[in-house]
Simulated scan of single mutants.
Amino acid sequence: MFTIEHEFDATVITLVDEGADPRDYLQEDITIQSFEDCVVVEQVDDQTENVQRIVFSPAQLRELAAALNLPEGVYRLRQVEKK
């Protein structure tokens, strides 16, 4: 399950781990905040109760999205000029 909320300066997506089986160990919710200049991914560490945070530039996020669908290798994305 996930939610999408549009706030003043960001779009916030929350991913909720529901588990496929009731016996599954569930992970803490993941929150993704998309700003104009960066994307922030946060998750609470259930052992320390500290928030773990990763900040992506827009270019890093595009590369991550592309990498999820590519085989093993080294890649560089090219910008396509709009006409």
Rank of each mutant, 00 (worst) to 15 (best):
V41H: 03
V40L: 07
R23F: 11
Q27F: 04
T48F: 05
V41K: 07
V39F: 05
T31K: 11
V51D: 07
R53W: 05
C38W: 00
Q52N: 14
D37K: 10
D24I: 06
D24V: 05
T31G: 09
V40T: 10
E49T: 11
T31C: 06
D37N: 12
V41Q: 10
D24S: 12
Y25R: 12
T48S: 15
D45Y: 02
Q52L: 15
E42F: 02
V41S: 04
V44R: 13
E49S: 14
I54R: 09
V44E: 14
D45H: 02
L26C: 04
D45G: 01
P22W: 00
V44D: 04
Y25V: 13
D37W: 00
R53V: 11
I32C: 04
L26V: 06
D37V: 05
R53D: 07
E49H: 07
D24K: 05
T48P: 09
D45R: 00
Q33P: 00
V39K: 09
T31N: 02
V44S: 01
T48A: 07
Y25I: 06
V41R: 08
D21Y: 10
D46Y: 08
I30T: 14
V51C: 14
N50Y: 05
V40E: 14
L26I: 04
E49C: 11
Y25G: 06
D21G: 02
Q33G: 08
I30Y: 07
D21F: 12
E49W: 11
P22C: 02
V44I: 15
Q43I: 10
E49A: 11
E28C: 02
Q52K: 10
V44G: 04
I54M: 10
V39T: 15
I30S: 07
Q52W: 01
T48E: 06
P22H: 05
N50R: 15
T48V: 04
D37R: 06
D29N: 13
I30R: 10
N50A: 13
D29Y: 01
Y25K: 14
D21L: 04
E42T: 13
R53H: 01
L26K: 12
V51P: 11
Y25S: 14
T48Y: 08
E28K: 08
N50T: 12
D29S: 08
V44M: 11
Q43H: 03
S34Q: 11
V41L: 10
E49G: 03
N50G: 03
